[in-house]
Structure formats: C-alpha cells, structure tokens
Amino acid sequence: MEMLKGNHITVRYGDHTVVDDVSFSLREGQWLMLAGPNGAGKSTLIETISMGVPYTGAIELEGIDIRRYKPALLARKIGVLSQKNSVGYGYSVEEVVGLGRYAYTSSFLSSRDDDGREQVERSLALTGLTDLRKASVLTLSGGELQRTFLAQVFAQNPQVLILDEPANHLDLVYQRHIFSLIGEWLKQPGRAVMSVVHDLSLARRYGTHALLLNHGKCTAQGEINQVLTNENLRIVYDMDVYEWMQDMLAQWQ
C-alpha cells in the first residue's frame, strides 16, 4: 500500500532552487533513506513533508494532499524528528515526551487520552530515558536530547516516521539501539519510515529503499542496493566511496 507520495516537489529560496522537481513514493514496510552530500536538499525535502517550507508540487498521504489535513490529524499519521532540536526553557524530559500526545488531546471533545500515559511510559523505556524523566532538558547531553525528541515522536504513535539524521549526537551504542528500535517499529503493519542519513553503512544496513539527491535533483531512486552503488555514489560525492569504506574497514584488520 502506498502511504506517502511526493509529486514534482520544488523548493526555491529566491532564485536558488534547493529541491528541484523531486518525486518519491513510500510504501508500507519501506524504510526510504535520503542520501547525498551537504546541501543536496535532503533536509529541505523532509521539511516540505512537515510543512516547514513553502513548496510547489504535491505531497499525498493515503491519496489526500497533506495540506488538506488538519494539523492534529496529520500529526497522528506523520511523526517528524527534526535535526535542529533545542528547548528554550527547563522542561522535564517527561513533559517534552508527553507533548507528543498533543494531537490526541487537542480539542475539548477528545480530551481523554487513555492510551497516552502508557504510550509515554513505553517511549521513555524504549529510548532509555526512564531514569532521566524528571531531569531538565537544559541539563541533557546532545544524545540525551536527541533521544528525548525521538521518544516524543514514538509517543505520538504515527504511521509514518520522518527522521532527519536520527543518529545525530548518538554514540555507537545508541546508534545501533535506535536504528534497531526503528527497524522493530517498522515491522508492525501499516508503517513506513523515511530518513536522512549521512552514514552510508547505516543506510545500507537498515534501509530498504534509497533516494540519492545531488544539487536538489534526484540522481537515483529505488531499492537500496541498486541505488547506493559505487557508480552512483561516485557521481554524487565525486569520490570513490567504496574504496574509502574498504580503507576505513582495513584500519581494523
């Protein structure tokens, strides 16, 4: 089943085209990795889905233009983890994660959120934050803050996860932990993930599909192994990625 579909998306900042006529399709059970060098337009493409930037073209969720969804209904279906996470005031971890339930309790009519408590508890436990629940977010490390916002997205219980650099600030242990977690989450029916990754090994290890961007344009897309080939990567990164990866690995032998 097709869950999310982008048709001819273009984003312009003045004369500068950041995303240039990109189309994509995200089906149930897929983990679509957005890869490409800095400034390729990956994060901007993610921003269009969370409606953070004006764009032309259309993005459809289950066949309906996302601009026609009410914000709270959209938030129940799409959860977004942004790259720029910071908090202005000293909220507790629990309060920030709890706000993930906003879409379920935003109106007077739906003010009861019976699953909410349980969902928040589970998210805290999954991201290893139970012990830090009362801590002020101002005192957290970058990785802990990243996990806090990831827990918030999990508490939101969406069908589609949109993640911009989920491994940002995470040490190796949590990188593996979080990626496996998302992999497990994806096994439930009716779910899909789209994420920006810089680490191509992580992309190959966990992704099912990939979209390679360069200067705002789509260079290749499809199944992960057919997209992240040495030829495609050479075009996009202008270097021999395979040789570099081998060289890195050789340091351990």
């Binding site: 969370s50 409606m51 953070g52 009410k70 914000p71 709270a72 209904l73 959209l74 938030a75 129940r76 959860g79 977004v80 942004s82 720029k84 996470n85 910071s86 908090v87 202005g88 005031y89 909220y91 309060e95 920030v96 706000l99 993930g100 906003y102 879409a103 309790t105 935003s106 916002f149 918030q152 997205v153 939101q156």
Partner: peptide, 21 residues
C-alpha cells in the same frame, strides 16, 4: 497552556506534534 508549552519548546516542534501554529 498546552500550546504555549509546545511553542516554548520550539515552533517547529509545535508544528510537528500537531499544533495549528
């Protein structure tokens, strides 16, 4: 009050969790 909490955490975050910003 809840929406203000969301804004105080960050406007982007408020939009992501479903606030009609």
């Amino acid at each position: 009050a809840r929406e203000l909490n969301a804004f105080a955490i960050g406007e982007d975050n408020a939009r992501h969790i479903g606030v009609n910003v």
